[in-house]
């Protein structure tokens, strides 16, 4: 049943990467419990534009939980209080009337703030570019069953490939570590025959890039797995460790 909420929002405002930011407090009223969190910010922004203020900058694209853009750290958690969802899939029914909601950008030295809640996640792109591909001529689609892949492996690779690069794992981690992301991108290829050919080179290159971008090490707290909207498993990090250390002794 639809209800209406009056809320106090404490939102991080920052002009650009070079100036310090600070929290601004806003009141919003009559927010429908059926709205998504982003729609609630849209309502606030409309009001800000009407009175000639600068609207809150935030990333979003698909608004259906698949693009990974809507990075917001809400009340101390990436993508807010619910598990397994992005901010666009978080609905206002998850909040109480009269609540104060604190909204911050992802905070990591590898994810500099561009403006307000928008951060630059191109460090992830560079990790992928370092080795998250297979160097094969794709050509036409192969005949079915040319390359037999056990169902379990296909499922596991597919589960790893569900990573949408949202960065919630980095945001949640006390070390701002990108292990869950990188391990998912390594695993989705390492599990399949096409990916095995370059596995050693890939693990070394992607880990080196991850370190160079300034992400932290892993303390195995499991915060990333718990906050990942796509349920990427810590087993991928263990697999990345195996891939990396076997590459240490086998890569040419």
């Amino acid at each position: 049943m639809e209800g209406h909420l009056n809320l106090t929002l404490k939102i991080w405002r920052q002009k650009n990467a070079n100036v310090a930011g600070k929290f601004e407090t806003y009141q919003v009223s009559g927010i429908s419990t059926d709205m998504s969190f982003l729609e609630m910010i849209d309502v606030l922004n409309n009001r800000l534009i009407e009175v000639g203020d600068d609207p809150v900058a935030f990333d979003h694209d698909c608004r259906e939980g698949i693009c990974g853009m809507c990075s917001m750290y809400i009340n101390g958690r990436p993508h807010g209080p619910n598990r397994g969802v992005t901010t666009c899939q978080l609905h206002m029914r998850s909040f109480q009337d009269g609540e104060t909601i604190t909204v911050e950008p992802w905070r990591a030295s590898a994810f500099p703030v561009i403006k307000d809640l928008v951060v630059n996640r191109s460090a992830f792109d560079r990790i992928i570019a370092a080795g998250g591909f297979v160097s094969v001529n794709t050509g036409n689609a192969q005949d079915a069953n040319n390359l037999p892949i056990p169902k379990d492996d296909a499922d596991e690779a597919f589960a790893a490939a569900a990573c949408i690069g949202c960065g919630a794992c980095v945001a949640a981690c006390k070390n701002a570590s990108a292990m869950l992301f990188t391990s998912a991108k390594i695993s989705q290829l390492a599990l399949l025959p096409q990916g095995k050919v370059e596995a050693a080179k890939r693990a070394e290159a992607m880990v080196a890039q991850m370190d160079e971008e300034g992400f932290g090490a892993c303390s195995n707290t499991g915060a990333c797995e718990a906050e990942c909207p796509k349920g990427i498993s810590l087993e991928n990090i263990a697999r990345m460790n195996r891939e990396y250390f076997s590459a240490t002794f086998s890569s040419k």
Binding site: K174, S177, F215, A223
Partner: peptide
């Protein structure tokens, strides 16, 4: 010490208990 440097601006609100054990952090 290395890991501490990876988040130069701290979060204002952190709900660590929601996703991990205090002793692991």
């Amino acid at each position: 010490l290395d890991n501490k440097k990876k988040r130069p601006v701290a979060y204002a609100v952190v709900d660590g208990a929601a996703n991990s054990k205090w002793y692991s952090r």
